[in-house]
């Protein structure tokens, strides 16, 4: 807090004492609000962590404190990593997510460029229409999808997810990219066109490098969505070796009416690790990428 009082931004005016005090109170208020929400947001993950460190006997024992682990053990993690198919599911999730992100980015960057920079017949409708695809819920689509996927011979196959997940990611990514491209000054394309560059060259040489923060933001979004997707995997993947993490955890660690809570929590926390790392390292780009596109939308 002391650093705030020394903040250089305070304008040197006569009222500046009161301003400083105001700022300080605002900051204290801010920290209180933050603390409240951090407690709210972190309670379940904290409880997950504690549960993941307990043996199943301790979890079943009602006399202990559920929020604290008495005899911590890494057994749940160890068993997940050495027995069963958890690593296979993890690998599948990585494959599916990587492919989905790549495909989504190719599709949405190309489309967004055309929609933002090359007005053509129906482009406005298409830009709106793309977003409207979210109106059709997954729970409605998966039944007709059974036939499509079945017809392609991809039922119970990991690659079906690579095919389907882009429907979840592409519309929003396209929207982010349209916003970002729109924020790039028009002078850039003019200059490029004058130099005789084609639109494709322009996209590749100028727009993509300039729009990298936006692309990163869209990638992170696509990553989050396809990492967490649940309905399609549970509907289409049956064999354990084809499953991704979300459905793998649910179907391998719950046996009829028996839940292996310790392992479920351990599995969930490890499943949260990749997105957590991505956000930890790329968060600033994410915000920067959204920022430029944000006001344009």
């Amino acid at each position: 807090m002391s650093s705030t009082t020394a903040t250089p931004f305070v304008p040197a005016e006569i009222r500046h004492g009161s301003l400083r005090r105001e700022r300080r109170w605002a900051l204290i208020g801010a920290y209180v609000a933050l603390a409240v929400f951090v407690v709210f947001f972190m309670t379940p993950p904290f409880h997950m962590l504690m549960t993941s460190l307990k043996s199943s006997g301790e979890i079943a024992d009602l006399s202990g404190n559920p929020w604290i682990v008495a005899a911590p053990t890494l057994q749940n993690y160890w068993e997940l990593l050495t027995e069963g198919n958890y690593l296979v599911h993890f690998r599948n999730s990585v494959i599916v997510t990587a492919c989905t992100v790549a495909i989504s980015m190719v599709i949405s960057v190309m489309a967004a460029f055309a929609l933002a920079r090359m007005k053509f017949w129906g482009s406005a409708t298409l830009a709106t229409g793309v977003f409207l695809t979210y109106l059709v819920p997954e729970t409605l689509l998966f039944i007709p999808m059974f036939q499509i996927i079945g017809g392609l011979g991809l039922y119970n196959n990991l690659w079906a997810m690579v095919l389907i997940f882009p429907t979840l990611t592409v519309p929003f990514c396209t929207w982010i990219m349209i916003g970002y491209f729109a924020s790039i000054p028009k002078e850039l394309d003019e200059a490029a066109l004058i130099d005789g560059a084609s639109h494709l060259q322009m996209l590749w040489k100028i727009f993509i490098p300039v729009a990298l923060p936006g692309i990163l933001a869209a990638m992170i979004f696509a990553f989050t969505v396809s990492w967490a997707a649940f309905i399609y995997p549970i509907a289409f993947l049956v064999s354990s070796d084809q499953m991704v993490l979300t459905v793998g955890i649910v179907s391998d660690l719950i046996r009829a009416d028996t839940f292996q809570w310790g392992k479920i929590m351990a599995g969930a926390l490890m499943a949260a690790l990749p997105p957590l790392l991505v956000y930890a390292f790329l968060m600033d780009y994410y915000i920067a990428g959204l920022t430029a596109g944000a006001t344009k939308g």
Binding site: Q147, G153, N156, I234, V238, S251, I254, R255, A256
Partner: peptide
């Protein structure tokens, strides 16, 4: 051989899927 769990009605989903896709097990 696949073992299909009844958790989350996964087995029902599987049956629906295979009867629609007319393939599977």
């Amino acid at each position: 051989l696949d073992f299909i769990t009844s958790v989350g009605n996964k087995n029902l989903l599987t049956i629906a899927a295979e009867s629609q896709a007319r393939q599977g097990h």
